[in-house]
Design a protein around this nucleic acid. Sequence first.
DNA 1: TGACAAGCGGAGCCTTCACTCCGTATTCTA
DNA 2: TAGAATACGGAGTGAAGGCTCCGCTTGTCA
Lengths: 215, 215
Amino acid sequence: MTDPSARRPRADAVRNRERVLIAAEALFAELGLHAQTDDIAARAGVGVGTVFRHFPTKRDLVEAVIARRTESLIADARDAAADPSPGQAFRRLFAQAAELLARNRAIAEELAAGMDVPALAPSAKQALFAAMCQLAARAQASGELRADLCPADIVMLVSCVAHSVELAQRIDPGLRRRFLAMVLDGLRPGATTPLPGRRLDLEELGRLAGQRTAP
Amino acid sequence: MTDPSARRPRADAVRNRERVLIAAEALFAELGLHAQTDDIAARAGVGVGTVFRHFPTKRDLVEAVIARRTESLIADARDAAADPSPGQAFRRLFAQAAELLARNRAIAEELAAGMDVPALAPSAKQALFAAMCQLAARAQASGELRADLCPADIVMLVSCVAHSVELAQRIDPGLRRRFLAMVLDGLRPGATTPLPGRRLDLEELGRLAGQRTAP
DNA sequence: TGACAAGCGGAGCCTTCACTCCGTATTCTA
DNA sequence: TAGAATACGGAGTGAAGGCTCCGCTTGTCA
């Protein structure tokens, strides 16, 4: 697959790409997706042109940053699948995700947007959702999680937790832990109200979200 | 307080103001806060200048629309305070709010933004939050709602429900009912996990939100 | 019914931001 | 080390969208 005629990239290009990523990580974490390309370039000590050569659109840059920052969480999610108590693992993962989100505004905003902005190939977001849903399924099988929860509900939950983190950070970070605890209480198997309506799996969810976002 | 020298407003001005409000209600409901002033003017059959004479900024127009659309919900909330089962009334009010939000994107976005954009005098949003918190307090007193819930949690909940409605509308409206049911399950008094951290009342919440939003 | 305050319309201003273009500089290869 | 290939910088472009300005129109009051 690798073109043998392709020469290795220039050293300055490699260096600059890395600098841009680091600057973007910092600014996206602090300001969210509203961080501006010019500022990222300035922080990286590089011209805007350079940013756009490495990442043709701002969206590409966002994706790259989020993929890097989410890597370890996705790894944790996969490890958790082997945990002897899937229910506890599920709750722990949610808490870890919330912590990550609290330190990275852009990721919180991105996850708050749910399944939207699709067609991004097997993106970090999708990988994370998939891992969480698998973990949830195991927790349901072991009776530690309400059985009527479906994958679409999980995506919704993650999105809402992300939203709550965004909100809490602007007001009082303690609030996000309270919200999380409350939501997790609603997920216990002893839940009193059966969830109404039809179940929706990840595939269909992606399809529905895709339909709406396409121009 | 009324200036006696002020003549009554011209008939065409009154008519146009009403037209603008109706057009804005329709477009905000459909497109959310992104609806554009030019389009609202066009829909009202009026020039942009006219819109801005009646509502000096877009924000003013949004406030006016939301106040109108929220009136009956706030009235319901106040009535609910007299309900013999405050717990049920609380849950019913949440469901009513979610329905309203589903039909009005702008209100959903606005409530999703939580306590932000303050300094809007006794706004519709604040009135609604206040009424809901009062109802919650009664439900707690009657043991139908977990006792460790504080006013800030309610605001957070409303905001997250609004967010979930926004999300669900783009994907599958059924999801918003599932989310609501799940969250309400987490509010029952039998909840297992005590909410961590300190309680926060509406006043302090408003102060904190104000600090962050001020320029 | 005439004078004039109040209101109207909409071209265009101004700011914000993602993104482009091209002359110059740096790195790599032979 | 020369020449080609690649990358760089940043002024400039274009689109979006809130808001202003001012010449014209319309209601109101005496």
